[in-house]
Design a protein around this nucleic acid. Structure first.
Ligand SMILES: [Mn+2]
Ligand SMILES: [Mn+2]
Ligand SMILES: [Zn+2]
Ligand SMILES: [Zn+2]
Lengths: 133, 133
DNA sequence: AGTATTATTGCAAATTAGTTGCAATATGTC
DNA sequence: GACATATTGCAACTAATTTGCAATAATACT
């Protein structure tokens, strides 16, 4: 389902800032500042506070999710049910790559052996990218 | 090896703040503020800036490691080679539980199929603890 | 389309986590 | 104990994020 219907469906307004923010997001995790800069380069003026507010809404709507990669700030990606992946973060240059590991179903595994009910997980790998080794 | 020898070995001074900070750490991840408060309750006065500086040193020494659980701040745990575990974080009450998953060796798996050289990983599960379900 | 209602935005100020400069202090060495 | 200097406390600072509020824009209703 697309963002316009999702917003309408839940009674939220379809605004330019919201639509433009969604457009710059992908499966590559961007910080709020980077999203803001990306919009700036497209000559789209959205206040940083509004970027934060939109992201907060999108996270609540499960359209976007946030991860923290040890940098002291959050990064945001589009939720994509068909592309379950994790990240490889280079300790040296900071490059972020994707890894798919669809062969293991952690959540189920945990839900079987523990009374904790898993909704989702974050798995991040830290090391050296090919160039930095 | 204990912290006193480790500090001496690397030419760092064995100071009261450092020793006391290590004492309040465990396998339960605490924020800098919480560490500071824990010391306060023991009537040990260590400046928050010193807490941050000690933690930074301990992380560099690989005695402590930090994780981020989506709260916008770091949490610190003692490194324990014999107890490889991950966390279950309750979305409702914020409780943090440990999970062991020693049966899978992700890092090796990734290193086999990718050119990225993994050093370590963070795996955190988010959901509802027993009480909050 | 024009107007009314109110959610959302921009802007500035505030807050929180973490960092830094520097003088005072404590640790390790002789 | 005295000396050299690493570490600390304190205050000021920065970066990320949040918040209050008036201005604006999106939907609902003629
Ligand atoms: Mn990604
Ligand atoms: Mn733990
Ligand atoms: Zn790299
Ligand atoms: Zn709970």
């Amino acid at each position: 389902m697309n963002i316009v219907s999702l917003l309408k469906e839940k009674g939220f307004r379809v605004t330019k800032p919201r639509l433009e923010i969604i457009k710059v997001l992908s499966n590559y995790p961007l910080s709020a500042e980077e999203i803001h800069d990306a919009l700036d380069k497209k000559n789209i003026r959205v206040d940083l506070a509004s970027v934060y507010r939109s992201l907060e809404l999108f996270v609540k709507m499960s359209v976007v999710y946030s991860i923290e990669l040890g940098e002291g700030k959050k990064r945001y990606e589009l939720v994509n049910k068909n592309y379950h992946h994790h990240h490889l973060i280079c300790n040296k240059c900071g490059t972020i790559e994707d890894v798919e590991m669809n062969e293991i179903n952690f959540d189920k595994k945990i839900n079987e052996k523990s009374k904790f009910l898993i909704d989702h997980h974050h798995l991040e790998f830290f090391g050296l990218c090919q160039d930095c080794q």
